[in-house]
Structures are given as C-alpha cells and as structure tokens.
Design a protein around this nucleic acid. Sequence first.
RNA 1: UCGGGGAUCGUCUAAUGGCAGGACAGGAGUUUUUGGUACUCCUUAUCAAGGUUCGAAUCCUUGUCCCCGAACCA
Length: 787
Amino acid sequence: MTRERSDFIRDIIDADLKAGIHQKVATRFPPEPNGYLHIGHAKSICLNFGLAAEYQGTCNLRYDDTNPTKEDVEYVDSIEADVRWLGFAPSAVLFSADYFGRMYAWAEALISAGKAYVCDLNDEEIRAYRGTLSEPGKPSPWRDRSVAENLDLFRRMKAGEFPDGARTLRGKIDMASANMKMRDPLLYRIRHAHHHRSGDEWCIYPMYDYAHPLEDAIEGITHSICTLEFENNRDLYDWVMEATGAAAASGHARSPRQYEFARLALDYTVMSKRKLLQLVTGKHVLGWDDPRMPTIAGMRRRGYSPEAIRAFCDLIGVAKANSSVDIGKLEYCVRDDLNQTAPRVLAVAAPLPFEITNWAELANVEGIGSNSQVVLDAPYWPADVGKPGSRNVAFGATVLVDHDDFQESPDSDFLRLAPGRTIRLRYAYCVTCDEVVKNADGSIAKLRGRVHPESKAGGKVAGGQKVWGVIHWVDAATSLPAELRVYDRLFSVAKPEEGGGDFLANMNPNSLTTLRSARVEASLATAAAGSRWQFERTGYFVVDIVDSKANELVFNRIIDLGQRTTKVATADAAAPTAPTAPTKNAKAATRPKSKSPQEFREEARKRDPGLLAEFDRIAALLGNNTHDADLLAGDTATAAFFAACTAGGAAPATTAKWMINELPRVLGDAELASTPIDAARFTALLQAIERNELTASAGKQVLAELARAENQSTAFAELAARFRTSNDAGALDASIAAVLAANSDKVAQYKAGKTGLIGFFVGNVMKANPGADAGAVNKAVASALAK
RNA sequence: UCGGGGAUCGUCUAAUGGCAGGACAGGAGUUUUUGGUACUCCUUAUCAAGGUUCGAAUCCUUGUCCCCGAACCA
C-alpha cells in the first residue's frame, strides 16, 4: 500500500498485518458523552476513522458511558453529529452501557476465579491502603474473603442492598506493584443514579479500566488507540483482557492492544473539557458553538470546513512527544481550503461614500438613465482558481469604499486611495479622488471625484496617469446592510494554562468585534446559511447559521486573508512570541527522586559480596576499567555470562565491549536468559571476530541472527560462513563500480561537495558484500570517487 | 519501591546504524484588476558529555530538562 503519511501507529499496523497477527484493522473512537467534541478529538477521529479507511477496516463510534452522573443525551447527539459532519461514517454506533450485562458476568467469573473481591473500605481508607508513588501499598483487610462470600456480596451490590460508596469490587492483583494502577484497582462502584441509556436498571457501574478493555474485546477491536496519559493504564488493560479472556469469549482470535499517542494542544486556546465547560457556564463565551471555541461545533459555526480540519489533522501528524501546535497551521489549512472553495464577492466593512461628480458623463457613455446603475459582470473566481461563474453587480452615482482604503496624508507604503490619486474599483472603473468632504468635527464625511468611463473592465485611463491599486467597493443604492462579526484569538497568550494563574485572566478582551454598519453587494441577499464567501481584500466570511436572516444578514469572519499589509505589521507579527519561560510544574517538584541504574547496580553489590568480588575481578581483568566492570557486575546473570565467555576463551576486552555495546541492542527489553543467545555461541562469535574471520559489522549481523528465536537451531558455523570476511578485491571493486554507476546523480552531488553521501555508497556496497571489511570499502569507495 | 513515557529547524513532523527530508512560520523575488493565490530561491535543527562503529539523530553509559501516575473520573 502506498500512503503519504507515516507514523508509529501505521508502522505497528503494517507490521501486524505483515506478520499475520491481524487480517483486518478494527478501531474505535470512544468519547465519554460529557461534553462537546473539540479539535483535539478531531485528531483522534481522523486517526481512528482514517486508519479504518486506509486499511479497509472498520471504526466504531462508541460512547464510553460508564459514569451516569456526568453524562447526558445532549452530548451523545452532538458527538455523533460532529463525527458525521467531519466526514466520517461510523461502522457502528455503540454504547458501553449496552455491554453492562456481559461485563457483570465477567466480573462474577473473575470473583469465581479468585481474581476479584468485594472490599468494604471507604474511599479514604482505600487511598491510605494504596500507598504512595515511592512506597508499596498494603492489602485490604477484605482481600481474602471467600469466593462464596464475594459472590454473595457482589450480587447484593447489584441488587441495590447497599448505599453509594459502601462497597466496591476490586481486582486482586498486587498492592505492592510499582504501577499504582495495578494496586488492586476498583472494578465496580455503587451508584444509585439514572443512566442516560440504561435508565435505572443498574446501580453498580464498571470503572473505565475494567470496562474499556472489555468493550474493545467485545467489538473485536485490533488497535485500541488512546492518548499518552493512559500509558500507566496499559498494564491493567492487559490484565483485564487476560483475566477475563474476553476477546476469545467474544469470538475474536486476538486480544486488542492499546497504543498511546500525544494529544493535541493548540496555542492560544484551551482544550480540556473542564475548562471549556467553565467558559460556557461562566458565560465567557456564547455557548459550546461560539465561533471562538475550539469545539467542532464552534469551528463549524465559525465557518471552518470539515476538509480544512481534516487537512490540519493530516498536517500535524501523530507521534508520542508532547507538543503544542502553532495555531497558524490551522489557519493555513483553513485559508488553503477557502481559497479554492469560497466565491469572491464585494463587501465594505466601514463604508465611506465616494460621490461621482461626472456621473452624467458615464451614464451617457453607458447609455443609461441618470437615476439607474451600470450593471457590471463580475466573475466569482480569480483566474488562478479558474472556476466558471459570475454575477451582476450594480455601479451607481455613489459607491461605498472602505475607510481603511483612504488616507488623507498617505504613509509611504500606503498603496491605496488618497487625495488626487487614481485607483481602480474592482471589476469596474478607475476613479480619481478630487475632494475630501468633512464633518463639523473634522472627520471625513465623504469623498468626491471623477470616474474614467474608458477604464471599464481593465481599460487604460485616458490621461495615462498612475493607477495606485485596486480596491473593493459596493454600490450605495443597491447594497445591503449586514453585521460582520470579526473574531480574534480567545486568549491573548500562547499558553493560557501556564503560569499557575487563572486561565480566564488570559482571555483576550477583543476576541469579538461586531461591525454593524457594513454593506454587502446585493447578490448576497440569497446567500444560504453556512455558505462561505471571500469578501475581496477583507477576509473569508460565512453566513451565520444561527443569527443570520433574510433581511438581517450576519456574517462571521472565518479568517483574514493573511495579508502582510505593511512593513510595520510584519515587524509586529515577527515580534517576540514572548519566550515563554519554562514554568515549573508544582506537581513534578514534589515527586521523589528515583534511583539511577548505576545506584541499583551498586546496591546489588553491597547486598551480594560474591558480586562485589566479581566486580573487582572483572575490573582487574579489564585493566582497572571500573566503568565497564560496573556494567558487567551489576547483576549476577550478567556477571556469570561474562565469566562464562572469558572462561570459554574469549578475550576479556572484546567480551566487555560486545556485551556492553552490542548485546543490549539485540536483546531489547528481553532478559538475557530468555533469548537463544547462550555463552557458548556468544563466545564462538567473539573468537571468530578476534581471529578476523568476521568483521565487526558482520559480527553484529550474526549476533542479530543469533538473537532470533527461530534461529535457535541454526548452527553458529553456518551463520559465520555466510558472513565470513572476504578479501576478494576484484569482486569488491566491481561491486563499487556497479553502485557508483547505478547512482550517477549522487556521484555528481558527492563531487559537488556533498561528502556525506559516502555513507550511502558504502552502505550499498556492504549490502551486496556482507563479508567485506567496511573500513576498506570506505577507503576504496573514496578513492573510486576521487577519480 | 518509585514506576512509565519523551526531547530533531521558531513550530509540527520524517529519517528502523548509511543523503538530517517535508510542511508551517520568516526573508527575497516573479506573476497578478485581491498587499490574496501560484511559482522560484533563501535562512534555520539532532538536549549535553563520554563510549561502540568504517560510519551514530538512531546502539551503550552518565547527566539535564519535560510529561504522566497515589478519583468510588475517563
């Protein structure tokens, strides 16, 4: 499959598919219906549904509604609407609540298997028994109840005999686990509450950590993708999967696996549901769909298209590093989309009348009455977009231009209207400003000037005078009044949540500007709610889907055109995005310091005199290299392995080097004992290297082969023969020549100075000659290239 | 008894020991009846120090910094 994107999730799926672990991909998007979806959810939606589409798999929309006290049907409805609006069709729309029966049955099975128990501790006691990050917990006094008693109690919990909080069902795992999530986690709690879907059928509800893996298992999810903060929950996810056998019981050959990616953070906004809710309930915004909100509903009303949002999600990628995306990337995607999809029309935000003094002359030329307007044909699209379509615009004796397009004493970089200047009115005529009429207070009331009839539709001005530019306008008589709502960022700082203060204090007081005296061209009278337009030179606007009416037009500004208007403005934009001082996380500061691996090894030797003696012996053997000795004598298995290799005849220095640098690489997270590599084969490898039968790079490849379980039976000698050092200079030269010939473009680049390419050539030669000495190849390639 | 993750241009993200690539932002220019678009060119990065290797962003060691975890939330 060819695809333009690559990320670690897709890599995992590719590998799973290739290895035959899965034949199909099944994902899910599992929101809790306790709020509106936001752009962060869009990232997850695009990932999960996008994966399903790319791999011809499925993606369910599943409501993770296991907590009746926080959830609501209003949210359920909005979530599905938002997902569909974004352009995705769920393979199925499902509810965790519908699985409560099966989850309950598995809980009873867990109890019967001695893997879960009913605990009578209250919440405070549970917390106390759980221990802390650096101290183990202690077992609940109720941990060893009999299966019969647990079953009885659990059934009575379900039957409603106990009040909220009286008892819980807990997994019997390990109160001393380093992972707090595994210290006998709560599986069920009592909640006498009405559930938006299951009503009053249940008074015990499963916890996320118990419910989620079961939901995935029931639905046959293959890749359960969530955000980074659930990394600690993965062990528990796997425990539930294993302990219940839910996947197999649901008819699925493989258990789902959980993978975590970094959630989206965006500059100049907040993304937590709690804070978003706070904005809504505190009336800091007009609602969940306020166009300034980062919610899907807000962006929809703002005029962002689903395509733009999906493009943004593609643009930012998927990775495991916490990051905060520049809001400019979203704005880029929105503009990029709108440029191709929004027809151009004329609108004036702050009208300034321009009276045409020679209107009679124009009327005569155009052959119309002095009280009517010239009708001009204006294309909806610029030539570079190249789409068909146009509309009529009227041009009368008075036109309205934008206040911003006139300066009485123009700045040096101001390219628009000023007294005495001639300018083109878009799609119409050139006009010259002859007179500025002022109000009593000195403000500008209107402009007066001449139109140049011969300049219609691109014609030159007869006098040959300079035309300063092109500005937008509307006809005074036929244009329509409209309200323009201009939005800016909701927060005035890039990271409103940082700094420890109240994030609300960072709100931008000017995030909404309402322009009530705007005028738009008459053709917009019939513009559909939600339709998007470019008001030329002003920005992109959408007809508000809530407030706009036929004779009371309301437009939301989607985004400006991104014009770098003046030098001053650019300097402003480039100005310090306030180097945000790395704020100290109070929580992190209270975290206890953990031991380094080095300290662990040292302590191991303190406990074990035998290991300490080994350390001294190895250090002496390596010429008092205590650094290496520390690594080799940090645990008994490693020390024994080293001892066995050297006793078997391998040189201590070589053994140390390979054990320290190369062995961990092929081992990965696995323990030495659990791999097919034993001391005998490793020793044989080291000796072959010492005898120059294997080069260093060949040795590494042999080691990698050795580490693969399926090669357990492969004789070392066979591998060694495959990679044996060869000194066939003739073959090598031919191989080098072939590589250079096949990459003549790179050879040219190399000769032009891109010397880093040497590695590319050597790598290719090495692939063809596994036994060659890379050092020699390097020299040979260099000299071949020098010719 | 602390454990689990992470760190690559200003920003986001590629490069599974072999060319540090792309996009956004920024700069310069060309085109343009939008100070838009398009096109061309340019600037800019592997957290630090050691080690292994012919060759390290990638493997090893030590350190630094950041995030997550002790809800009957998800």
